[in-house]
């Protein structure tokens, strides 16, 4: 802020006359700021950048949304950013759902998602429980194995992973991507480990004194207390798996095994240049993400931050 406010700092003869009502204060404050060219400039500049960014974020998907309601002829003859003649024209949606294999894709992705999430949570909590509660030979080695695995980017190793999947006879079998989603993911273990530190050991001990077995302690005490971590992991994994394109492209090429991502990817070969139909397909696939995001905004922010920083 500038320091050009000397004018209002003159001594005042009668203080009483200077006591202002709420409206006077608001007005005086606003006028005071307007008199500072730097304040005016920066405020305008800040909003301008935000508005520009918002436009940049909105225009591309908005154009796709518009296209999804247009007929093919309309799409090619009118401006791509013009409103469609009829917002109730769902022909593209009907067509893409029927011919685009989207029903199958959603079923497949859903199946993969649920099984992967289940095992990620089971294995993640179990590994975290064992590593944070017991001392045993080789524990340091196991921890080290997880640390090093984090450094290896999965994209690079797929050339060799492909051989493993092939040897296991899992090409075109959902088991392939499910195992990769479960086994090659280390960040989740870290999130669980981090949360385990916050669960007091006294709880375990109190249960032990009551005669609980270790499994019971895991099942009845640790698992319920890890709920916030579980929520974080589920959110992060759902975003990742729903959006993942790489693994299904490599390991699930067959038509019967399409996921949401690969089904959409194949649109250009199925529908050619029917951009209006393709647009409808894109919108169908975007909607669940947006709805889930708006519902779980806070948890998603927290999850993304934790996942990146702790990972």
């Amino acid at each position: 802020m500038s320091s050009q406010q000397v004018s209002s700092m003159t001594p005042t003869a009668s203080l009483a006359s200077q006591v202002r009502t709420g409206d006077e204060i608001k007005k005086a404050r606003f006028i005071g700021k307007l008199k500072q060219p730097r304040w005016v400039f920066w405020t305008l500049f800040k909003y301008m950048t935000l508005i520009l960014a918002s436009v940049a974020v909105l225009v591309p998907p908005f154009a796709v949304l518009l296209a999804s309601f247009k007929t093919s002829k309309e799409y090619y003859t009118t401006s791509k950013v013009a409103l469609p003649e009829n917002f109730l024209n769902f022909d593209n949606y009907i067509k893409v759902f029927a011919d685009g294999n989207l029903g199958l894709a959603f079923t497949n992705t859903g199946t993969i998602l649920i099984i992967s999430l289940f095992f990620t949570v089971v294995f993640g909590t179990q590994v975290a429980y064992v590593l944070s509660r017991f001392n045993f030979k080789g524990k340091k080695l196991v921890l080290l194995a997880y640390v090093i695995a984090m450094v290896v980017p999965a994209v690079t190793t797929q050339v060799a992973t492909f051989e493993v999947i092939k040897a296991l006879n899992l090409i075109n079998h959902k088991g392939s991507v499910i195992m990769l989603y479960i086994g090659a993911d280390v960040v989740m273990i870290y999130i669980f480990l981090q949360f385990m530190k916050g669960i007091p050991l006294e709880l375990d001990e109190a249960a032990k004194i009551e005669g609980a077995s270790y499994f019971l302690i895991y099942w009845k005490i640790v698992l319920p207390l890890l709920k916030p971590a579980t929520a974080t992991v589920i959110i992060l994994r759902t975003i990742f798996i729903y959006n993942d394109f790489y693994f299904p492209l490599l390991y699930l090429p067959e038509k019967s095994q399409v996921t949401v991502s690969t089904a959409l990817y194949k649109f250009t070969s199925v529908f050619g240049t029917e951009w209006t139909t393709i647009s409808a397909g894109i919108i169908i696939i975007l909607i669940p993400s947006i709805v889930v995001f708006l519902l779980l905004q806070k948890q998603i922010y927290a999850g993304v931050t934790n996942g990146a920083v702790k990972g």
């Binding site: 406010q5 209002s8 700092m9 003159t10 001594p11 005042t12 203080l15 200077q18 006591v19 202002r20 009502t21 709420g22 006077e24 204060i25 005086a28 404050r29 005071g32």
Partner: peptide, 15 residues
């Protein structure tokens, strides 16, 4: 919100 603050006889309400 409303009213005045004076420090050393200077009106600083908006400073």
């Amino acid at each position: 919100t409303a009213g005045g603050i004076f420090i050393g006889d200077k009106d600083v309400t908006l400073e």
